[in-house]
Measured scan of single mutants.
Amino acid sequence: TTITITINGEELRIRGDHEEIHKILKAWEEDHNDEEIVRLIRELAER
């Protein structure tokens, strides 16, 4: 699965399995701050 998210003008492409993507979207849905979401995404992007 690949998704693209733009946060603060920075486009981040994430490839991951369903569970990893779900974790990010769940954090977003629960209204975590952008920095935390960006950190989760970067961790995935670095793999």
Rank of each mutant, 00 (worst) to 15 (best):
T1F: 09
T1R: 10
T2H: 11
T2D: 11
T2M: 14
T2A: 08
T2F: 11
T2R: 04
T2C: 08
I3R: 03
I3E: 02
I3K: 04
T4M: 09
T4G: 02
T4P: 01
T4F: 12
T4E: 04
T4N: 06
I5H: 00
I5L: 10
I5P: 00
I5Y: 01
T6M: 11
T6P: 02
T6D: 05
T6E: 09
T6V: 13
T6S: 09
I7N: 01
I7K: 01
I7C: 12
I7G: 00
I7R: 01
I7D: 00
I7Q: 01
N8L: 08
N8M: 11
N8Y: 05
N8V: 03
N8W: 06
N8C: 07
N8Q: 11
N8H: 10
G9L: 02
G9E: 04
G9A: 03
G9F: 04
G9K: 02
G9N: 05
G9P: 00
G9V: 02
G9C: 05
G9I: 02
G9T: 02
E10C: 08
E10P: 00
E10R: 06
E10F: 04
E10D: 07
E11V: 13
E11D: 08
E11G: 04
E11L: 12
E11W: 06
E11M: 08
E11I: 14
E11A: 08
L12D: 00
L12R: 02
L12C: 02
L12V: 05
L12P: 00
L12K: 02
L12I: 09
L12M: 09
R13D: 05
R13H: 14
R13S: 14
R13P: 04
R13W: 15
R13A: 09
R13T: 12
R13M: 15
I14E: 00
I14G: 01
I14P: 01
I14S: 01
I14W: 03
R15A: 11
R15S: 13
R15L: 14
R15Q: 13
R15Y: 14
R15G: 06
R15F: 14
G16D: 05
G16K: 03
G16T: 06
G16R: 02
G16M: 07
G16Q: 04
G16V: 09
D17A: 07
D17L: 06
D17M: 08
H18I: 15
H18W: 15
H18M: 13
H18Y: 15
E19S: 09
E19A: 11
E19Q: 10
E19P: 05
E20P: 02
E20A: 04
E20S: 06
E20I: 04
E20H: 05
E20D: 08
E20K: 04
I21E: 01
I21Q: 01
I21K: 00
I21W: 06
I21R: 01
I21D: 01
I21V: 09
I21L: 13
I21M: 06
H22P: 02
H22Q: 10
H22G: 10
H22R: 12
H22L: 15
H22W: 14
K23I: 11
K23L: 09
K23W: 14
K23A: 15
K23C: 03
K23T: 11
K23R: 15
K23F: 11
I24H: 02
I24N: 01
I24W: 05
I24L: 14
I24P: 00
I24D: 00
I24A: 03
I24V: 05
I24G: 00
L25P: 00
L25T: 03
L25S: 02
L25Y: 07
L25V: 08
K26P: 00
K26W: 07
K26M: 13
K26T: 10
K26F: 08
K26L: 13
K26G: 06
A27M: 14
A27K: 13
A27G: 07
A27R: 12
A27I: 11
A27Y: 07
A27P: 00
A27L: 14
A27C: 03
A27Q: 12
W28V: 03
W28A: 02
W28T: 01
W28C: 02
W28I: 07
W28E: 00
W28K: 01
W28R: 02
W28M: 08
W28Q: 02
E29G: 07
E29H: 09
E29Q: 13
E29R: 13
E29S: 10
E29V: 11
E29M: 12
E30V: 10
E30S: 12
E30R: 13
D31V: 06
D31W: 07
D31R: 09
D31K: 08
D31G: 13
H32Q: 14
H32S: 14
H32C: 11
H32D: 10
H32T: 13
H32R: 15
H32I: 10
N33E: 11
N33C: 07
N33Y: 15
D34C: 14
D34R: 11
D34V: 14
D34G: 10
D34P: 12
D34E: 10
D34Q: 07
E35H: 10
E35N: 08
E35I: 10
E35Y: 07
E35W: 06
E35D: 08
E35L: 12
E35M: 11
E36C: 02
E36G: 08
E36P: 01
I37C: 03
I37W: 06
V38C: 05
V38M: 12
V38D: 05
V38H: 08
V38W: 07
V38K: 13
V38R: 07
R39Y: 03
R39D: 06
R39L: 09
R39C: 02
R39M: 07
L40A: 08
L40T: 04
L40H: 04
L40C: 05
L40F: 05
L40S: 03
I41M: 05
I41N: 00
I41C: 02
I41E: 00
I41K: 00
I41G: 00
I41Y: 02
I41H: 01
R42F: 06
R42S: 05
R42L: 15
R42H: 05
R42Q: 14
E43R: 03
E43W: 12
E43P: 00
E43F: 06
E43G: 02
L44K: 01
L44G: 00
L44W: 13
L44D: 01
L44R: 01
L44Q: 02
A45N: 06
A45M: 05
A45V: 08
A45W: 05
A45Y: 03
A45S: 04
A45L: 13
A45T: 04
A45E: 12
E46P: 00
E46V: 04
E46T: 03
E46Y: 05
E46A: 04
E46L: 06
R47W: 15
R47E: 15
R47Y: 15
R47L: 15
R47G: 15
R47M: 15
R47A: 15
R47T: 15
R47H: 15
